[in-house]
C-alpha cells in the first residue's frame, strides 16, 4: 500500500506532459515523470519518496519508439528492458539489461527509468557511454538532443520539469566487438558487485563501469592506460585501478579491497577476450 495520495496524469504528447509538469511545479507541488514505476512503488511503500502528482509518459508515442532508421538506433524512454532484449538491435545493451533485476521485472522496468532512477548502479547507461550516445530531453520550451556525456555526471542531471524522451545510438557501434561482465556477491540476480562493459572501436577499447564508485562512469585516463599496449597487461590494469576517479565502494556486497581484487581480475579477463578476438 502506498501511504499517500497523488494525482495521476497520462498525457498523449510531450507538450501535454511538460505543460502539466510546469503548471504543477508552479503551484509549489512535487511531480514525478513515471514510466515503469517499479522504483517509485517500492520506495513509496516504504515512505522513502513523496510526490503530489505522477505523469505517466507511457502514452506518448515518441517515448515508445524503438527503431533502426537513418543509421541510428532510437530507443524511447518507456521501452522496457524486455523489449530491448527481445528486439536485440544492440547485443551489448541486450546483455546488460538482461542482468538487471529478474525477467518479469524487466517487463516493467524501462530504459528511461533505469537511467534516471535513484538506485546507484544504473547499468543500462554503460553501453550508452561506450558508444558516445545522444539523449533527447524535453521541457516546456521544447526538445533538445545532446551528447549523453554532457548531461551525465554521476547521474543524469535533469531539471524538475525535464523528461527523457529517447536515446540515440549510432548504427556503426551496434555490431562492434564488445563484452559485458557482471559479478555479484552470491546470486545471479542481484545488484552488482562490479559490472563492466567494453567495446572496441577504431581507436581502442572503451570501458564503462558500475558499482566501482557510487555512480557509473567512463574515464579517459583509465582507458589510456588500459589501451597502452607498450605495457604488460598487469601493469596497464594496475595503473588504471590507481586512476579510479573516486573512492572505491565499500559495502555489504564487497569491501573496497575485495572490489579492487575482483576489478583487476575482470579487467584481465576483458583484455584477454579482446586479444583473442584480434
Amino acid at each position: 500500500m502506498i501511504p499517500f495520495d497523488f494525482k495521476y496524469y497520462k498525457p498523449g504528447t510531450i507538450e501535454e506532459a511538460t505543460d502539466i509538469a510546469n503548471k504543477t511545479l508552479k503551484k509549489g507541488k512535487k511531480i514525478m515523470y513515471y514510466a515503469g514505476g517499479t522504483e517509485f512503488i517500492s520506495m513509496a511503500r516504504m515512505h522513502n519518496i513523496y510526490t503530489d502528482a505522477i505523469i505517466d509518459i507511457k502514452g506518448i508515442p515518441e517515448c515508445n519508439t524503438h527503431e533502426l532508421k537513418n543509421n541510428e538506433l532510437t530507443i524511447g524512454s518507456t521501452v522496457t528492458l524486455t523489449s530491448i532484449a527481445e528486439q536485440n538491435f544492440f547485443p551489448l545493451l541486450s546483455l546488460t539489461v538482461e542482468r538487471i533485476a529478474d525477467h518479469t521485472i524487466q517487463d516493467k522496468i524501462t530504459l528511461g527509468g533505469n537511467l534516471a532512477g535513484t538506485i546507484i548502479y544504473r547499468e543500462a547507461v554503460l553501453p550508452l557511454m561506450v558508444t558516445d550516445s545522444d539523449i533527447v530531453i524535453a521541457n516546456t520550451y521544447g526538445k533538445k538532443r545532446i551528447p549523453l556525456k554532457d548531461i551525465f555526471d554521476k547521474r543524469i542531471q535533469l531539471q524538475e520539469d525535464e523528461m527523457i524522451v529517447k536515446v540515440i545510438i549510432k548504427e556503426q557501434f551496434l555490431s562492434l566487438p564488445s563484452i559485458h561482465v557482471k559479478r555479484t556477491k552470491n546470486e545471479k540476480i542481484d545488484y552488482p558487485l562490479i559490472t563492466i562493459v567494453a567495446l572496441k572501436d577504431d581507436i581502442g577499447i572503451n570501458f564503462a563501469f558500475s558499482s566501482i564508485c557510487e555512480y557509473p562512469f567512463r574515464s579517459s585516463s583509465m582507458e589510456n592506460f588500459l589501451n597502452d599496449n607498450s605495457l604488460p597487461k598487469d601493469e596497464r590494469i594496475k595503473k588504471a585501478i590507481d586512476n579510479v576517479p573516486d573512492k572505491i565502494l565499500n559495502d555489504i556486497s564487497g569491501s573496497s579491497e575485495y572490489r579492487k581484487f575482483m576489478f583487476h581480475s575482470m579487467l584481465y579477463e576483458i583484455l584477454t577476450h579482446f586479444e583473442e578476438v584480434n
Binding site: 495521476y8 497520462k10 514505476g37 517499479t38 512503488i41 517500492s42 505517466d56 507511457k58 524486455t82 533485476a101 529478474d102 525477467h103 518479469t104 521485472i105 517487463d107 516493467k108
Partner: peptide, 24 residues
C-alpha cells in the same frame, strides 16, 4: 517485486502486480 507470487499477465507478458498501479 522479489518473490513473484503475485505474477499476472498484462497484454500477455508476466508482470508482478505488486509493482503496478491499478490505474496503469
Amino acid at each position: 517485486g522479489d518473490c513473484g507470487a503475485c505474477t499476472i499477465l498484462v497484454d500477455d507478458w508476466p508482470i508482478k502486480s505488486c509493482l503496478m498501479l491499478t490505474v496503469e
